Amino acid sequence: MTNQPQPMDADWLVVHPNPKVPDFVLPAGSVDAHCHVFGPSAQFPYAPERKYTPGDQGKDKLFALRDHLGFARNVIVQATCHGKDNRAVMDACRTAGDLARGIASVGADITRAELAEMHEAGIRGVRFNFVKRLVDATPPEVFLGIADKIQEFGWSTVVYFEAADLERLVPFLNTLPGIIVVDHMGRPDVRKGVDHPDFQRFIDLMANNARIWSKVTCPERLTVAGPPYDDVIPFAQAIVEAFPDRVLWGTDWPHPNLKSHMPDDGALVDFIPKIARTPEQQRKLLVDNPMRLYWAQ
């Protein structure tokens, strides 16, 4: 029996209906290295413990956006609204074949057989979420156990936290094995400026641990000024300049939990040359780095 679609939250913003064709022409083989699929909930129900209910935005819409913007591949990140049920991401990866990889959310009881099945489907990492408004707290030892299990498969971990939590998380992050990818630059408070100790702590973390990468993503979440997100440029630019071989970029489509405005994904692509200012930086950010991390295994 097919489940009924679940209605989205009343304050959920509708995805931009007609994103522009970007003015910036992406390098051949570019990867949208941070995006999501939501449902469709009749086929892939949202988790009972979810903190929000989005509108359905499935794989067909994601792949149409990929082609419209000029990307060649996607890295699809498990959204918290699906909890630890990774079927929607795995289904999208299987449909796309070599054109997509996935990041899963798993529990401590995950088995080797389950990880092997995920790997076959295209999963290449797990995500640990520390944002309290999105997930319930998980003991660090649980995350460490999961991180140990995935090393056999050559996977990386994605960690999502906010700047205020970084200081307490530094010892834990330095304990994690393998490559660690931080979502959205650790969500800095852009009102404080790049020289503020909070952001410099993140720069120091990357400088002192060569296994830590950063997604220079989501100016629409970090901005105070709004589009075209000029207040976010110095932060992303600083990371790209300092660590060109350890940065990734993605749209974050379909933009979970945004309450202020819904970005035009074409305009987000036009943000890229403002933060990666040379062709070499752009190719590393969009092609070389994601292919090395997610397509080498």
Rank of each mutant, 00 (worst) to 15 (best):
T2R: 15
N18H: 12
M1L: 11
A104F: 03
D252N: 10
L65E: 03
A72D: 15
F202H: 03
T95M: 15
A104W: 05
L65G: 07
V194F: 09
A104L: 06
K274N: 07
R187P: 15
A210P: 14
V142L: 08
R87Y: 08
D98R: 12
I110A: 08
D60R: 06
Y52D: 01
R50A: 13
R101T: 01
E220G: 08
A42K: 13
A88S: 11
Q78L: 11
L13K: 09
G58Y: 08
R127Q: 05
V181Y: 05
R246P: 01
V240Q: 00
T251R: 01
S214A: 14
V21L: 10
T157P: 00
A147I: 08
H119T: 12
Y46H: 04
V182Q: 06
A47H: 14
G250A: 02
W295H: 05
P40Q: 00
A33V: 04
L99D: 12
A64K: 10
D98S: 13
W12Y: 13
D60H: 11
A10I: 14
M291V: 07
E49H: 12
P5N: 11
L26E: 01
G102F: 03
E114M: 07
H261A: 12
R73K: 15
Y294I: 00
Q4A: 13
L248N: 05
Q57E: 15
P45E: 04
A79K: 03
V194W: 10
D32R: 01
P188A: 00
P27W: 12
G125P: 04
H119Y: 08
I233P: 01
G29F: 01
R127M: 09
F153E: 01
V135G: 05
V106N: 06
E280V: 05
V77P: 13
A72H: 06
T223S: 12
L268Q: 06
V170D: 08
P177Y: 02
V287P: 08
R277Q: 12
A10N: 11
T175Y: 04
A10M: 10
Y160S: 14
E49T: 12
K192T: 09
A113N: 12
A104Y: 04
E152P: 02
V126A: 11
M262L: 11
G83C: 08
A236Y: 08
D91T: 15
D60F: 11
Q6L: 14
D9K: 07
E117W: 00
A113V: 13
L69T: 05
R127E: 03
A92G: 02
A92D: 09
Y229L: 07
G29S: 05
L293G: 03
G122F: 06
L205H: 05
H34L: 11
Q281G: 01
D91M: 10
T80P: 00
V142S: 09
D252Q: 04
I179F: 12
G55M: 14
